[in-house]
Design a protein around this nucleic acid. Structure first.
Lengths: 346, 346
DNA sequence: TGTTAGCACTCTCTCTCGTTGAGTGCTAAC
DNA sequence: GTTAGCACTCAACGAGAGAGAGTGCTAACA
C-alpha cells in the first residue's frame, strides 16, 4: 500500500485542522470542512485507517479522531519547502522595521531579531550569533582606563566586539599602548580569534620593550580564545508564548520548558550542533532538550560575510504553523545577514 | 482594641504557616503546630476573629482558615528588618562565588547577579544597572574599524562601556583619531554622559581641522545621551520560578507575568521609579505591573562608587519568604557594589 | 470495485449530587 | 479569661448517569 494523491490531500486537511484546533480530527470534520472531492465520511474513514497503518496518523483512543504523527509532519514540511507561502508586504516591512534601527552591539541585534521572529510567529525563538572563535580580526585596540587597567577591544569581520579588561604597567603611556595596538593590528589582521594567542607568543621576542604589556595581552587573548571556543551570543524571544498552547497548560511542563530556555549553556550546545544544512526540523525527543519533548524546532542558518554561520530556531508545539514559520525564517535569515554586514561597514 | 504581644505571636505563626503551605490556616493548626503559649484552638479562634477585625487577616470563605492581609505582611516585614536572619557561611560563599569570575561587561555582571539571587531565593529577580546618564566620563576613545567607520568607546566611573558605531572620514588616519581621543578625554573627563554632547558643541570651533569627525562624534554622543536618559541595563533571572507557586498554576496568569517580564521597557520604568529609600516593599497592585497583581516585590538599591544607584528586585507571590529574601538582598547589594568598583580598577 | 448509508459499540467529557472533613461562631461551663 | 461542645457552612472529592463524537463493520448501491 502506498500513499496516493487522495490520501495526501486528506492527510494535509487533517494536519491543517489539527494545527489550528489541537483537537483530534474526525472523518466527518474532514468531509465537511475541507474540500477533498466531496467524499463521504465513511470513505474518509477508510482512508484514515490506511493512513494510520502507514504510520502517518495516531489515535489517542478508540473513539477519538486522528492526530498526525511526526512522520506526517515531516512529509508536510517537506511539501511546504517548495511552495512556501510568501509573507505579505506588510508583514515583511514590519519584520525589517524591527531591525533597522542601527544596533550598537551584536547582542542587541540578536535580541531584536529574536523578539521580532517570536512576535511574528507567536512561538519561542532562539537566535545564535556567529561562533566567535572562527571570526577574523580586523582591528585590535588597547584603551587605557586607569593607571593600571586597560580595555581590550577586538573588532572582527562579523561585527563582534569583545571587551576584556586587562592589566597594564604603570609605565605604559597612552602613546605606547596606541603604538602597540597599531602594530598588533598590522601583524595580526586576518587571523581568526583562536589563532591570535599562539601568534602573539611567537611575536613576544620582537616586543621586548613592552614585555609586561604583551604578557598580560597574551593572558587576555588566551582567556578570550578559550571562552570563544564555545561561546556565542544567544538571544531568546517570546519564551512566554509557549504558555498559550494547551500542550503546555500544565505548569510543570511549562516550567521545565522555560528552565531549559534560561540555561543558555544548553541552548548553545544545541545550536552549535545543528549546523548541518540550512534548514533542520527536529520533532519531540530529537530536540534533545529537557522539557521540550512535545515541541518541534525549526532551525535555519544564516551567514555573516559568507562565513561564520549563526542560526535562528523557532520552537513551538509539534503542531506548528510550519508554513508561516518557514516564510518568516526565510526572510529573517536574509535580514540578519545584511544587518551583520552593515554593522561593520556602516 | 489594639494588637498585643499574644496577637502578634499568633499572627506570625499564621504568616509563617501560610508562607510555607499556601493553605488558609485554621485555629487548630496554630494551636498544635506552633508554640503560642499552649492555648486551645477556641482561644486562638477568638484572637483570630479580633485580628480579622483589625484588618490583619482575611477569610476566603466562612468555613476556611484565615489568610494574612497585605497589612499583615507589611507588619511582618517591618519586624524582620531589625532581626533579619543571617545567611549561613555556605550560602553567602555560594552567592559570592557566582559573581567573582571577572566579568567582561556590566551586562554579564548583572545577569549573573540576577541568576544568583533567583537561585538563592527561588523567586524571580530583576537587577537594574546604574543609570547611564549620570555616570562620569573617565576616558573616550575612537577605534578605527574600517576606512569609513569607527567604534566609539566610552569608559565611565561605573564601569559601563558604551560602544557605538560612528562614521569617520576617509582622510582621518589612525593617528588623528588617537590624537582626537586623547584631547577629548582630557577636556571631557569628569563630565556626566549627558553633559558631553552639549560641551562638544561648544568645543567645535577649536577643532576646525577635524570638523567632520567632530560632527559625527556630536551626532553619536547626542544619540547616546538621548538613549542614556532612561536606558539602564536590566537583567532578569529565574523567570520560570513563578510557575512553581500554586498562585500561578493558571497558564493565563503565568503568561501575563512572564510577558511583563519580557517587556524590558516596563521594568525599566518601574525600577527607575522606586529609588526612594534603600528598601521598598510593594504588594499586589502597588507593583503597578500587569500580571503581578498577586505578587509582592522587594526592591533594594545598591550604589557604585557611592553614586549611580542601581536596584535589585525580588518578585514572588505575596506569601514570600521575606526573611530569607531580605538577607540575600542585604548580602548581594554589598557584593554588587564591590564588584562594580573592581571592574573598573581591576 | 470503489463508495456510501446505517448501526452497534467505545470511550471521554461533563454535569449532578451526595458525602466528607476542615473550620467557624456561639454558648455554657470551668 | 479560657475551654469544651455543638450546630452550621462550604469547598473538595468521587461516583454515576448521560451526552456526544467518533470508530469499525456490514450490506447495499453505482
Amino acid at each position: 500500500m502506498d500513499i496516493d494523491e487522495r490520501k495526501l490531500r486528506i492527510l494535509h486537511a487533517i494536519i491543517d485542522d489539527y494545527i489550528m484546533t489541537a483537537i483530534p480530527v474526525g472523518s466527518r470534520t474532514v468531509s465537511k470542512k475541507y474540500n477533498v472531492g466531496g467524499l463521504s465520511s465513511a470513505t474518509i474513514r477508510n482512508e484514515m485507517s490506511d493512513l494510520e497503518a502507514l504510520g502517518y496518523l495516531d489515535q489517542p483512543h478508540t473513539s477519538a479522531g486522528r492526530v498526525p504523527s511526526a512522520k506526517a509532519y515531516r512529509l508536510y514540511v517537506e511539501s511546504l519547502l517548495d511552495s512556501a507561502p510568501k509573507l505579505t508586504p506588510g508583514e515583511s516591512a514590519k519584520l525589517r522595521g524591527q531591525l533597522t534601527a542601527r544596533e550598537r552591539q551584536l547582542r542587541d541585534l540578536l535580541e531584536r531579531a529574536a523578539r521580532a521572529v517570536a512576535e511574528a510567529t507567536g512561538y519561542t525563538t532562539v537566535v545564535a550569533g556567529p561562533a566567535a572563535r572562527e571570526q577574523r580580526l580586523r582591528s585590535i585596540q588597547i584603551v587605557p582606563v586607569s593607571e593600571r587597567a586597560a580595555l581590550l577591544v577586538i573588532v572582527t569581520d562579523a561585527a563582534v566586539f569583545k571587551d576584556t579588561m586587562m592589566r597594564t604597567d604603570e609605565d605604559a603611556s597612552a602613546e605606547q599602548l596606541f603604538y602597540i595596538s597599531r602594530m598588533l593590528t598590522e601583524h595580526l589582521q586576518g587571523l581568526t580569534v583562536g589563532e591570535i594567542g599562539p601568534r602573539l607568543k611567537m611575536m613576544q621576542s620582537n616586543l621586548r620593550e613592552h614585555a609586561r604589556v604583551v604578557r598580560s595581552l597574551i593572558d587576555a587573548m588566551g582567556r578570550i580564545g578559550r571562552e570563544a571556543a564555545d561561546t556565542r551570543e544567544i538571544a531568546v524571544g517570546g519564551g512566554s508564548n509557549i504558555l498559550q498552547f494547551p500542550e503546555y497548560s500544565d505548569a510543570n511542563k511549562a516550567r521545565a520548558f522555560l528552565t531549559t530556555l534560561e540555561a543558555r549553556e544548553h541552548l548553545r550546545a544545541l545550536l552549535a550542533a545543528g549546523q548541518g544544512g540550512t534548514l533542520t526540523l527536529r520533532i519531540g525527543a530529537e530536540t534533545g532538550m529537557p522539557g521540550m519533548e512535545e515541541c518541534a524546532m525549526i532551525t535555519a542558518s544564516y551567514t555573516a560575510a559568507g562565513e561564520h554561520p549563526g542560526a535562528i530556531s523557532v520552537i513551538g508545539p509539534v503542531r506548528m504553523r510550519y508554513g508561516h514559520v518557514l516564510s518568516v525564517l526565510e526572510f529573517m535569515t536574509r535580514c540578519l545577514s545584511e544587518a551583520l554586514l552593515m554593522s561593520v561597514d556602516l
